[in-house]
Simulated assay, not measured.
Amino acid sequence: MEHSKKLGTFYGVGVGPGDPELLTLKAVRVLEACPVLAAPQTASGEMTALSIARQAADLEGKTLLPLYFTMSRDRAKQQEAHRAAADAVRPYLEAGQDVAMAILGDVSIFSTYCYLMDILKAEGFPCVMVPGVPSFCAVAARLGRSLTEANTPLHILPGGGEGPGETLDLPGSKILMKSGKNYPRILEELEQRDWLDRAGMVENCGLPGERVFSSLKEKPESSGYFTTIILP
C-alpha cells in the first residue's frame, strides 16, 4: 500500500495493571502527545485502560475512539473484530493524526494492540510499541514474592480457554493469567498437586475491588476476569 502524504503513527501504550503511578514517563508523554486515543471498551461501556491513564496524564481535548472486541473463542469472530477495530483506526492515520491505543499491562503480552498492529503495519502505517509494567510483575510485588532465582525458568500461562493443563508441571515458576473463569478447575488441579499452600493470587491488581491472597489453602472464592495466580 503506497501513501503520498505523511501518515499518522499507531502507538500501543502499556498503562500497567491498574495503579496509575505505574505508568512510565514515556507512556504519559505519548498519550499526551497523540490527538486520538483508542482503547478497548466493554459491553457495559467501560474503558478501563483509559480510566487508568486519565489519572496520570492530561487527556483533555483528545478524540476518544472506543474499540470493541469479542470475548468469543471463535477464531473467525475474533479476526472480524480485529479488522473492524483496524478499520476504525485507519482513517485517523490516513489523515496524518497519531493514534495511541491504551492497553492494560504491557503491550506485548496477550495484547489486542498487536493484532491491529499486524494489520496496519502490513498496509504501510508506522507502528510503535510503548512497554508497560506487566500485570504479573505488579502481582508478584503485591504478594512480596520473587518470580525467579538463578537458573529458574519462568512460564507465563493463559489461565482462560482450555486452561493450563499439563503445562502446570513445567519446571520453574508459573504465572496463570486471566484465571477467573477457570478458577474452580485450576483450584482442583492445584489441590491434586498439593500446591494450594504455596500458590498466591491477586484479583484486580491495582484496580477497584483488588483482593490479595498469599495462599489458596482456604480456597477463596474468585470470579474476576483479572485474576492472576503465581506458583513460585
Rank of each mutant, 00 (worst) to 15 (best):
Gln41Thr: 06
Glu2Cys: 01
Met47Asn: 00
Ala38Tyr: 09
Ala81Ile: 01
Ser44Arg: 10
Leu65Phe: 14
Ala39Trp: 01
Leu64Glu: 13
Cys114Pro: 09
Asp74Cys: 06
Tyr68Leu: 04
Arg211Gly: 13
Gly105Pro: 09
Met117Asp: 03
Ala53Arg: 08
Thr63Met: 13
Lys178Tyr: 11
Leu231Gly: 02
Arg145Phe: 14
Ser51Gln: 14
Thr42Cys: 07
Val133Cys: 03
Ala76Lys: 12
Gly224Arg: 11
Thr24Gly: 13
Val28Arg: 06
Ile230Glu: 09
Ser179Ile: 08
Pro232Val: 12
Leu22Thr: 00
Asp87Ile: 07
Tyr225Ser: 05
Lys219Glu: 08
Met71Gln: 05
Ala150Thr: 12
Leu50Ala: 11
Ser44Lys: 10
Glu123Arg: 00
Gly163Glu: 06
Glu191Ile: 04
Gly224Val: 04
Leu147Asp: 07
Leu120Arg: 12
Arg198His: 14
Leu65Trp: 08
Ser135Ile: 05
Pro220Asn: 06
Thr63Asp: 10
Ser111Asn: 10
Ile230Lys: 06
Asp98Val: 08
Ile103Val: 14
Ala33Val: 11
Leu143Ile: 12
Asp87His: 12
Ile52Asp: 01
Leu7Gly: 08
Val133His: 05
Val128Ser: 09
Thr48Ile: 01
Pro35Tyr: 12
Glu21Arg: 08
Gly200Thr: 14
Gly209Tyr: 05
Lys62Ala: 12
Glu2Ala: 00
Ala49Ile: 06
Leu154Cys: 05
Arg73Asn: 00
Val139Gln: 11
Val15Ile: 00
Leu176Gln: 00
Gly144Phe: 15
Lys6Ala: 08
Pro91Tyr: 10
Ala100Val: 02
Ala95Asp: 01
Gly12Met: 05
Trp195Arg: 05
Pro40Phe: 12
Asn151Gln: 14
Leu25Glu: 09
Ala33Asp: 15
Ala57Lys: 07
Ala85Trp: 00
Leu64Ser: 11
Val133Ala: 07
Gly16Val: 00
Lys6Gln: 04
Leu7Cys: 02
Arg29Asn: 15
Lys219Cys: 02
Leu93Thr: 03
Ser222Ala: 12
Asp74Ile: 03
Cys205Lys: 01
Ala53Phe: 13
Asp74His: 04
Ala33Lys: 14
Lys181His: 14
Val30Arg: 08
Lys26Tyr: 03
Leu170Asp: 10
Gly224Glu: 03
Glu80Met: 06
Thr9Ile: 11
Pro126Val: 01
Glu166Asp: 10
Asp19Gly: 06
Ile229Cys: 13
